[in-house]
């Protein structure tokens, strides 16, 4: 690597940033700000926006994408792309619709089943990428297509019924105010904060920044990559589970829309697609923004035909903005 290329020109200008500047200019902070702005707009145009019912709906809508994006973040941070997200979501959705299991016990078994499916796919990905050293986009493209195929084998057309307990309870609220889906997202975020403080968690950032240097620092690159893919796969499983709760039915192509949106959420959340920088919470909020944007546009009177145009430009602007903000602060600090 070119050591000189990354050498900061001014040690005292670029380097010493106070913690609050760092925090404020982080991707997660920017995307949270975006979420708040969007929500304010939404509330302006749609008075019901502040009701618990609307909020629960928003969270329910965003939960599958948010959790899938959280999983994708693990792989992106370790400098990889995981396309299998679409396959796993389809497969788990079909699994939920073809073999519904009633009651809380059934729901738990279903959830474990979904996680297991994701873990198996993640293990295969990990093996292809970490052991056989295949390119991540290409390898996960293969596993994604295989999973899509399997979903079609299990259920060749949309249909089936997700267990009632899952589709009712998981889209409801606790004490009438706290959305269950929100609790599950919070649990994912909490697990992430714990994971961040493990050697493997730090290892993901190390591998993402510079695989060679990480290896020479004693990090087991193979183990870290495996962990990233398996963790990601399990989260896709949970995403498929939540999607099933929301749609209450099965669709062998349910995961297809996730492919692009997941990366949009990750990028929006401030995670660098070249690895080593960012975090999972930003991706979750990023997913929330993408879903909220649709509602805002609708309530603002924009035809649903054109929401994509806004989504696309928001994505581009968010990336430019996320890059511009830290520079702005740096320039200020130098003066």
């Amino acid at each position: 690597m070119s050591a000189s290329a990354v050498q900061p020109l001014e040690r005292n200008g670029g380097g010493r940033k106070s913690n609050w500047v760092r925090a404020l200019t982080s991707g997660a902070a920017i995307v949270t700000l975006l979420y708040v702005v969007l929500y304010a707009l939404y509330a302006l145009w749609e008075p019901r926006a502040l009701s618990s019912y609307t909020f629960t709906n928003l969270i329910n809508n965003a939960a599958p994408l948010a959790i899938a994006a959280a999983g994708e973040t693990l792989v992106v941070l370790s400098r990889g792309f995981d396309l299998s997200v679409a396959g796993v979501v389809s497969l788990t959705n079909v699994f939920m619709a073809v073999w519904p299991m009633e009651g809380p016990g059934g729901a738990l078994i279903s959830l474990l089943g979904c996680c297991a499916i994701g873990a198996v796919v993640g293990t295969v990905n990990g093996w292809l990428v970490a052991v056989l050293r295949l390119q991540t986009i290409a390898a996960t493209l293969g596993t994604m297509i295989v999973c899509q195929g399997l979903a079609l084998v299990i259920l060749d057309a949309p249909g089936g019924m997700v267990a009632d307990w899952v589709s009712y309870e998981l889209t409801g609220t606790l004490f009438g105010v706290v959305p269950i889906a929100g609790l599950i997202i919070a649990a994912v975020a909490l697990l992430w904060l714990v994971f961040l403080r493990t050697n493997t968690g730090i290892g993901i950032y190390a591998v993402g920044a510079d695989e060679q240097a990480a290896m020479l620092s004693g990090v087991s690159v193979t183990r870290v990559r495996f962990a990233a893919f398996v963790g990601a796969g399990m989260l896709y499983g949970v995403a498929g589970f939540m999607l099933s709760a929301q749609t209450a039915t099965g669709n062998p192509n349910a995961g297809a829309p996730f492919l692009m949106l997941v990366f949009a959420a990750v990028a929006l959340g401030g995670t660098s697609l070249s690895g080593g920088r960012g975090g999972l919470i930003g991706s979750i909020v990023g997913a929330g923004c993408l879903m909220l944007l649709q509602k805002v546009l609708f309530s603002g009177g924009v035809s649903s035909f054109y929401t994509g145009i806004f989504q696309g430009f928001v994505l581009i602007l968010a990336i430019l903005f996320g890059r511009f903000m830290p520079r702005l602060f740096n320039a200020g600090a130098k003066k």
Partner: peptide
């Protein structure tokens, strides 16, 4: 101490010194 430096630029000095076990 490697010629090409085996430090992780995105981690802190402390994390780099402790690598791989915090």
């Amino acid at each position: 101490a490697f010629q090409e430096l085996s430090l992780l630029p995105n981690l802190t000095v402390a994390e780099n010194l402790m690598m791989p076990r915090m």
